[in-house]
Design a protein around this nucleic acid. Structure first.
Length: 348
DNA sequence: GATCCGTGGGG
DNA sequence: TCCCCAAGGAT
């Protein structure tokens, strides 16, 4: 079942109002037959997972400047990719990005799988990203369902079921609207609509191209949809970070690939689980302050301990890295905070 | 299905 | 200050 009218209205709106983005081919160029490089669409889509466009832009530019094609990325060092991703969050994305790039080179001759089903088999590519790449880079009529699409569908059809229970219904509704003509532009149109007009709070119904079809608007409940089950409160965790220096060198430790901040560089800690844990080296540790940081599912309070170690000290974990061999920018945000506190303490 | 996994901006 | 949330995926 298909409602041609609705998708046509969205495409006409998109032709006029499409946002300009570094990875996007304009609707005008696309209608002339130009499609974007799947590598770049894939890269942008992975970066955009649960992440705002504003936060992604600079990262996207740096990645594409340094690794212009999938073969370049596949040949990169793990540490370089993780350092370039530092600060963007959800670091499993970066690890899977590298795995996928290497799989494309090793198993697909350096060419991205040409269908949604093929894309789905690559690490880090799920239902959303597979559809997005297939629709945007190949113009395959795949249905894209992200948070924007869910919100737009919930409002257009006044779906009262709370998320995530409503997901299957919203997916079916989105599929019923997906056109065979210009599915790539259509996918981007719905997401642009959700990001700029059909926003979570205070939707701009006055300038919405499909307002006359919106059931929620007719009922005056558009701002209440989609409904969601209340989220549980975030627990508080406490822990310790050890900041060891030796001249201009600091003790850093690569975190294990799985779990929180997996694969990233950081300062040795005690596990932050209340169980306690030994310092990486015996020293005259001094408490220099506390930092707090909030992750997706918990608040963290970290006590910072610093020590200047004599030459020849034997450390049980991590290794000393010179200040000119790494940058604070290579660290995840919580570790940047700790590093910053250390610099402030040393400078004084 | 439920959990885990970051970060920064907006209201 | 605090909560919400953003072009989700893996386990």
């Amino acid at each position: 079942m298909r409602d041609a009218g609705l998708s046509d209205l969205l495409l006409e709106w998109y032709d006029r109002e499409a946002r300009v983005m570094p990875w996007r081919v304009s609707p005008k160029a696309r209608r002339a037959g130009i499609l974007p490089d799947p590598y770049r669409i894939w890269l942008s889509e992975v970066m955009l997972q649960q992440t705002t466009v504003a936060a992604v832009k600079d990262y996207y530019r740096r990645f594409t400047a340094r690794w212009p094609g999938v073969a370049d990325l596949a040949a990169a060092r793990d540490a370089d990719v993780m350092a370039e991703w530092a600060g963007l969050g959800y670091y499993a994305r970066a690890r899977n990005l590298l795995k996928a790039a290497r799989a494309v080179v090793a198993d697909h001759g350096g060419v991205f799988p040409g269908t949604r089903d093929g894309l789905l088999r690559l690490p880090g590519i799920g239902p959303y990203t597979a559809s997005a790449v297939a629709a945007i880079a190949y113009d395959e009529p795949a249905t894209v369902v992200d948070g924007n699409v869910e919100r737009v569908m919930a409002r257009l059809f006044a779906v009262q079921t709370p998320m995530p229970l409503a997901k299957p219904d919203l997916t079916a509704l989105a599929a019923s609207l997906t056109p065979d003509q210009r599915p790539g532009d259509y996918a981007q149109a719905v997401m642009d609509l959700g990001a700029t007009i059909c926003t979570p709070r205070n939707p701009a119904c006055g300038i919405c191209p499909v307002v006359q079809a919106c059931v929620a608007r007719r009922q005056g409940i558009q701002a209440e949809l989609p409904r969601k089950v209340p989220k549980p409160e975030k627990p508080v965790r406490r822990g310790t970070l050890w900041l060891a220096t030796q001249g201009d060198r600091v003790l850093l430790q690569r975190r294990p690939d799985k779990g929180l901040l997996g694969g990233m560089l950081g300062f040795p800690g005690d596990g932050w689980d209340g169980a306690g844990g030994a310092a990486p080296v015996e020293a005259d540790w001094q408490e220099i302050g506390e930092i707090r940081h909030t992750f997706t599912h918990f608040h963290l309070f970290l006590t910072l301990h610093a020590a200047e170690l004599p030459i020849g000290s034997v450390v049980t974990r991590g290794q000393f890295v010179s200040g000119n061999e790494f940058s604070a920018e290579d660290l995840p945000t919580v570790m940047r905070k700790a590093y910053s506190a250390l610099r402030d303490n040393v400078t004084r």
